[in-house]
Design a protein around this nucleic acid. Structure first.
Lengths: 147, 147
DNA sequence: TATTATCACTTTACTACTCAAGTGATAATA
DNA sequence: TATTATCACTTGAGTAGTAAAGTGATAATA
């Protein structure tokens, strides 16, 4: 059975690295009382606000149901507001949300970057980025093989 | 605020790609009545069996509590057995577990590989693997920056 | 011998996601 | 006007993870 392909080895590396770095990132963001998922959502809102829930869901690769729960929590914490416009709910950051992002953003960015800066040259990072971009874009239009 | 580093761009790509491909993989593995996480755990057991829960937890980067629940489910489904040896529980696959893996393994491997085969040359895949290996290994010994 | 420490695992309460069924308002049609 | 469709969002049941407290058996110490 032991007959691994190079692709399956890459896959495992990516999976292990992302869970690992996600855990570290969660630990890091505790100092701002945020989780990685919350930071991600707040970032997307700050870039695209005002926007609807379904637009946001697509940006963070989460289902409608997932984003609904997430936003309930963020609203309860006072980071965002949702206004009912006709049948759509329009999302934007509160002042508290803006403030926490302004603090967390540069530090989180530096933290994320450190994973790569510590071991790869500028050139290697560019290579990694371009390879991953191609792989990611391909996965977005990928269909399941027939049974 | 918009001042992204190359590292943060890579990070986002990796996160989006892994959630995306995890979802596709879950959908794919439905034909074997497995989730990606379950497949991963069964694979590790098949390689290292017999082993203890804590050893397994470390191999799949999950906490003791997480592996405990996971194994309860897999045992209920009849894929594995746990034998109490002194204070340790020794895990191994059942015949049903072996059978489902034997079926799923080659197909899942081909599926994982297709993410990369479809857009990268053999050479590029080797490059990607070596870059990610360095990044992953670095993350394993990484410490949080001081507050 | 009685107490305490250690160890491997379980449990509780939580975040974060999935799919699929449900809700409630507007729009389209009979 | 009454019915049906559609749309954006919510909710219920489930998987998968976390941290931290709990359990129960063996080992180490007073």
């Amino acid at each position: 059975m032991r007959n691994n392909t190079i692709g399956s080895l890459i896959w495992l590396r990516l999976m292990r690295f992302t869970t690992q770095s996600n855990q570290l990132s969660n630990e890091f963001l505790k100092r701002f009382d945020l989780t990685t998922a919350q930071f991600d959502v707040l970032m997307q809102i700050s870039i695209y606000q005002p926007l609807t829930q379904s637009e946001l869901a697509e940006k963070v690769t989460v289902t409608q149901g997932g984003i609904s729960r997430m936003l309930v929590r963020l609203e309860k914490e006072g980071y965002i507001v949702r206004k009912q416009d006709w049948k759509t709910k329009t999302i934007s950051l509160t002042e508290k949300g803006e403030a926490v992002l302004e603090q967390a953003f540069p530090e989180q960015l530096a933290f994320q970057s450190s994973f790569f800066d510590e071991v790869l040259s500028e050139e290697e990072q560019k290579t990694l980025y371009s390879l991953m971009t191609r792989v990611h874009k391909n996965s977005q239009k990928k269909e399941l093989p027939p049974v």
